[in-house]
Amino acid sequence: MTEQKERELYFWLRLIREFEDRISTLDKQGKIQGGVYSGKGQEAVVVGVCHELRPDDWIFPLHRDLGAFLVKGADPNRLMAQIFGRRDGFSKGKDSFLHGGDFSNCIFGATSMLGSTLPVAAGTAYKFKIRREDRVAIAFFGEGASSRGDVHEAMNFAGIYKLPVVFLCENNFYAYSTPNELQFAVEDVSDRAVGYGFKGDVCSGNDLHSVMKAARKAIERARAGEGPTFLECKTYRYHGHSEHDRATYRSQEELITWESRDPVERWEVYLQKRKYDIAAIREEVGGKVKKIVDDAVAFAEASPVPEGPEAMEDLYATPITEG
């Protein structure tokens, strides 16, 4: 890996961390209405996967994959406006948090209907296949969502048609309060891949190297026409399910154990091993990401609040006028 790439990856990890932390603070200040789902602790997954993609590959992020939007190229200002529910957000205030999507950067909007995006990702991959386009689709989902029937149906389709899709499971051990042993009877949910006729793989979601290696393999397989992969990244969310969940269902020790495997710090340790001046890098990147997030907040706060007529827009290609 080149030094430039190593530094770039660090920048993304830090930018996401800064963004996530700021949103949590803004939420506490009452500036964001509705649910905020922090992906803090899971940054290496989205960076490791999205950094391996080309601009015309599609991603289907889950509800806490704010970082995937950023790495895939979404404008931080518009992303913040989206989270504020403002006119300049991707959905112009019609829906919350990551639900807008950003068509120009090939980012599908997350939905609350967990698991529902997987068949959509498979359909996208089908189009790539029959049009002989050298593109892949990445469908992110939680281990909780893996229990939905739609997920099974998507994988079955993808297996039959050997579609260029990666089913990327962020296994963070809890679906809201529900621990994995009440979600499925196996250790690795990616074991299911066998039943659909494609490969399953597991990696450490807190280790950027491990994610990149596994993601690259899966993406190359898709590009080579060898079909889908079920890639499971084991990781952990530091915050509750949403910002108002105090996460009393898990132990403090468990959280501390996972914090000791922090993906951002791990990358710093790696950079240090490479003999870079980590103190200087940390400061430089810290200043840069803070400015980006400051600017994004200023942009979002200045963006107009939707006043009502927007609610009626974008329902049909030609608006229906009432009789």
């Binding site: 209405q33 529910g85 403002r86 205030g93 829906d95 609040v305 006043e307 009502g308 009626m312 329902l315």
Partner: peptide, 12 residues
Amino acid sequence: FDTPFPYAMEKI
């Protein structure tokens, strides 16, 4: 309204 439930326009 005859629309999906519009997030930032709930009051309206």
